[in-house]
Every structure is written in structure tokens, then in C-alpha cells.
Amino acid sequence: MSEWSKNELGQYEYAGGKEDWEKVEQIASLCEKFVIDEEDELVSDEERSCYNCRFRRWTKSAFVCMRR
């Protein structure tokens, strides 16, 4: 199954939800566009994680990546 699904706006939403900590760390470790967000927006203990990225926008079930 793909890690990403397209929403109605054509943007990529993560398919693994909000608790897929290890996987989003792996994705972020390979992502050249990762930028850590402000410290009060961080949710993961591992800094390099999609969940901590400035370009993620939370949705009801997961997040959209604004750089995909």
C-alpha cells in the first residue's frame, strides 16, 4: 500500500495516520525538503520526523505534505 494518498486538492496526505512514528522518521531521514518546525509545534521526540516538519499540515486523520 502506498504511504500517501491524494486528497481532493491533489495534495499528498500521509496514509499511516498520526501514530506511525518510526515510518515517518524513515521518510524524513531521506527527505531533502525536511525543515524542522518551531519548537512549540513539535510532537515527536525524534527531531527528524515528518510529524515535526514545517511543511506538514495536520488533517483529521494524519497530515498533508506541502512539499510533495
Binding site: D40, W58, T59, K60
Partner: peptide
């Protein structure tokens, strides 16, 4: 302080829900 809000689609796709 930073407060979390509901991640409504209109906001979720463009900006932080905080």
C-alpha cells in the same frame, strides 16, 4: 502559549491548526 485547534480541511491544507 500555543493551543491546538480542530484540523479543519480548509485550514489543514494551508496552515497549522494552532
Amino acid at each position: 502559549s500555543r493551543h491546538r485547534l480542530y484540523p479543519h480541511p480548509d485550514t489543514g491544507y494551508r496552515k497549522h491548526n494552532t
